[in-house]
Design a protein around this nucleic acid. Structure first.
Length: 240
DNA sequence: CTCCTGTTTA
DNA sequence: TAAACAGGAG
């Protein structure tokens, strides 16, 4: 009996999905934590697809505290897709200031116009159509689907990627394309049937406030008992 | 997959 | 000033 020829010597991680018990523990811990520590953000009080889209496109590039006042101003000035669609491009870009990345307000504006002219003023809810808009990629499509339409859609942004990587992978290469695929699979596998909205918001929240990139606050983290990266050692997560 | 864009950080 | 970042485009 020779040893298995293909026994990888722990060099290549095998990306396996957690079983149902593990998924359940993760969800319970996450939602329990969220019940106590959720941040109160204005875009969590709406299911308006337009408002969700505005907040997500702003948050793609800018931290929450800078987005907050601009989001309010924006919604005042352009309360609906229709209002935005009829605005002049120069005004739209000016209103966006000083958030920067001016391609994004232009894309948001063109989405508004396209939705008015091609989709009867209603933002579509299906993935392929959402992704057909310039400015909506995998992350934003998932966010809009789950936050605005309550669909069971996964999200992976950098916060979520970091959390899932640490809890379920723990160490190794942070930027292989296989890993990225795996994180999307994980995010989808973990999604509860109900509470999709809260679950996805909670995932991002814990990554933004506890499981942060540098000096994660493991003592405050509900995941530490089940976390593959605990106790945290920064040297164990790196590229290549 | 590589490249792109402004912004932020080393 | 170079490199990292973050999500998207091609």
């Amino acid at each position: 009996m020779s040893p298995p020829l293909n026994s990888d010597t722990s060099k290549t991680p095998r990306y396996t999905l957690p079983d149902t018990a593990m998924r359940r523990r993760f969800r319970r811990r996450l939602l329990g934590w969220y019940g106590k520590h959720a941040r109160d953000l204005p875009w969590r009080h709406t299911r308006d697809p337009y408002r969700i889209l505005v907040s997500e496109m702003m948050l793609q590039q800018t931290q929450v505290d800078r987005v907050l006042p601009k989001y309010e101003e924006w919604i005042q000035k352009y309360p609906s897709l229709k209002a935005l669609a009829s605005a002049r491009p120069a005004d739209v870009v000016r209103t966006w200031r000083p958030l920067g990345y001016n391609a994004r307000p232009r894309r948001l504006h063109s989405i508004a116009r396209e939705v008015m002219s091609q989709y009867g003023g209603e933002l579509p809810s299906d993935e392929p159509t959402l992704r057909s808009f310039k400015g909506i990629g995998a992350y934003t499509a998932g966010a809009v689907q789950s936050f605005a339409f309550g669909r069971r859609a996964a999200i992976v942004d950098t916060n979520v990627a970091r959390v899932l990587f640490r809890v379920f992978v723990g160490r190794g290469d942070r930027k292989s394309s296989l890993l990225k695929k795996h994180l999307w699979s994980l995010s989808a596998a973990l999604l509860p049937r109900r509470n999709v909205f809260d679950f996805n918001q909670a995932l991002m929240d814990i990554g933004a406030t506890v499981c942060v990139a540098r000096r994660p606050r493991c003592p405050d983290c509900p995941m530490s008992p089940i976390c593959a990266a605990y106790p945290f050692d920064p040297d164990l997560e790196h590229g290549s």
